[in-house]
Design a protein around this nucleic acid. Structure first.
Lengths: 333, 333
DNA sequence: TCGCTTATCTAAATCGTTTTCGTTACACTA
DNA sequence: TAGTGTAACGAAAACGATTTAGATAAGCGA
């Protein structure tokens, strides 16, 4: 059996309360006994039982990380964020507990909330339903939405700057002389898509280029959606000279479509993605993209959540982190 | 405040013990009250407090997943395994808690053990020091090493079949007519490297080809190691016609070195990697590799660990999962 | 009717901490 | 000298479940 507080108490002939206080930094214990307690605790290899401690303190020092397991697909995203979050949590004496949540069922999350296995949640989903946000707020559960903006004024989130990133990307394409630029949307991605799309339109307007609805193609979350989108664009009477794909996987698919038609990239058609997945660096040509600060997003989400756990009545934390344009061969040659 | 067992008890006018038993499937409670209890539990939204339950039962229903955060680098590996593990854990009413363990310090792991925050550990490291294995065995902590073989007869592990995979890869190269095959080793990877290397040598022997030490180059875990290795091999007086890289990242680096020299792949030099990272599919040419059953490895590790948690005195579980050759352009054209 | 078994329930101990509220002893002040 | 303040400690009550050991009542056979 493992060593308990009682063992230290007996070993030293002091009460358990004194031992506990000595270990937890209370000030009504003499320096002498404090040292003694800490030393024997170390010698005996004592570590407080997490369950007992949690039960009494009403805190678990654990953070729930709820993800939609479709994320495996974009493994860079998942891995870097989660590692960033884990490290940040550990530095604050917390740990991350993983939960998958398939089908966005509010019930299952509600369960987690009520079991109080964790002090709060980081939600990593493509789309967080409004009903879920309302439910979490009503239940007064600390939570942070990671990786996407949420429209609710009371919800906390940490998001990459999709708008500015897309703007920078458009600027990059303008500088290379493109005026006819295609865009692949993905409406199912909610505000992430909306922000990138809005930046696309705003950039055009600011550059004095008329918006052409023909140049905007919708893609779904499925293999080859980028492939088809690119073909649609190239089949236009007046095809674009550059394509801004909603994200890197779409871009990779789109690239294949263009190459199969014998087009040269970027000479015949330039191409850019978004998110900064490592994949986009290894394609040939490598694909221009906008990199998200993944590990920082993970870290900041943990910080934000910890603050909310500290005091959930504070105003929500809504943070937009800067992204970085990565010009590569697919636009620059 | 959340609803407790006492609330149900008061609500129905029965004792807390009856409620607890009704919920936990004891047989000394009538069907009638059992139904009643379960229904009100549902209505009131009751979920047992994890800490209280854990404290009393001496189990946490949580599995520690201890990883070396260098794993971010091979994000496919990390993401797929961890998602597989999480799903498997959830299906068995368990959850995964993440721990990073930098510097292989035995102390920090010992701490985790003693805090009994989890019922057991899955270790995901490049190299698990023998001292750590001994320590865990001595402390009688259930654990499973994931992704690599361990020499200790009492340690449990789940590993891909590195030997058979490498053998299949060599066979593939032989069939394509190669007899002069380079190999990049990575001694720091312990048995994983050893198994792949041994298969390389055994395959040569079986094919009646003399082993040539010049064709074996050592690489380290650092960027460009594959690049340098390939250059070394190509600088030989009699360079190989094919190179088997220890793993996909090395292969990607190696590929770049060959392409920069103006060589054609696979005509001038064929190339293969190992592990089946998605990256190797998107390079140009795509790289032949041996795919690990990642999500299965995660899942099986959880199963194995749960069985050890059930009874840690059983003989260790040592499982080798089949891998799959993925022939691609870098060998076949 | 008595005793025995069985079915159902309850009281109370327990898990290992933290934390509140006393208690003691001693020094110091007026 | 009585009173007061303070430093250091301890007893005991939580925290919210599970589980053991008893209690009660009903059912049944003799």
């Amino acid at each position: 059996m493992s060593v308990k507080i009682k063992d230290i108490s007996k070993h030293l002939g002091v009460s358990v309360s004194t031992v506990s206080k000595a270990l937890n930094g209370y000030d009504d214990v003499s320096q002498e006994t404090r040292d003694l307690v800490q030393e024997t605790a170390r010698n005996l290899g004592y570590r407080a039982s997490a369950s007992a401690r949690n039960l009494r303190r009403g805190r678990t020092d654990k953070i729930g990380f709820v993800f939609n397991n479709a994320l495996t697909f974009i493994s860079d995203y998942f891995a870097e964020i989660i590692v960033g979050a884990t490290v940040a949590a550990e530095q604050n004496d917390n740990n991350i507990v993983l939960y998958t949540n398939e089908g966005d069922s509010p019930d299952s999350l509600l369960n987690l909330v009520q079991a109080r296995e964790v002090d709060g949640f980081i939600l990593v989903w493509n789309h967080v339903p409004k009903a879920m946000i309302e439910m979490l707020l009503k239940a007064n559960v600390p939570f942070v939405v990671l990786g996407r903006r949420v429209r609710h004024p009371l919800a906390s989130y940490i998001t990459p700057d999709n708008y500015e990133g897309a703007l920078a990307l458009m600027q990059h394409l303008f500088e290379l002389g493109h005026t006819r630029i295609g865009f692949t949307t993905r409406p199912s991605m909610g505000l992430t898509n909306e922000d990138r799309f809005q930046a696309y339109k705003d950039a055009l307007a600011k550059a004095g280029i008329a918006y052409d609805a023909d140049l905007v193609v919708e893609t779904k979350i499925e293999p080859l959606s980028g492939y088809h989108a690119m073909n649609t664009l190239l089949d236009l009477q007046k095809p674009p000279t550059a394509v801004f794909a909603f994200h890197d996987f779409v871009a990779i698919d789109a690239q294949r479509a263009a190459l199969e038609r014998g087009l040269r990239i970027p000479e015949d058609i330039a191409l850019a993605g978004f998110d900064g997945l490592r994949l986009s660096l290894f394609t040939s040509p490598s694909i221009t993209t906008v990199a998200q600060p993944l590990s920082e997003i993970g870290r900041e989400s943990v910080y934000a959540l910890l603050r909310r756990i500290e005091d959930n009545s504070l105003p929500p934390i809504q943070k937009t982190l800067p992204v970085q344009l990565r010009p590569r061969q697919s636009t620059q040659g």
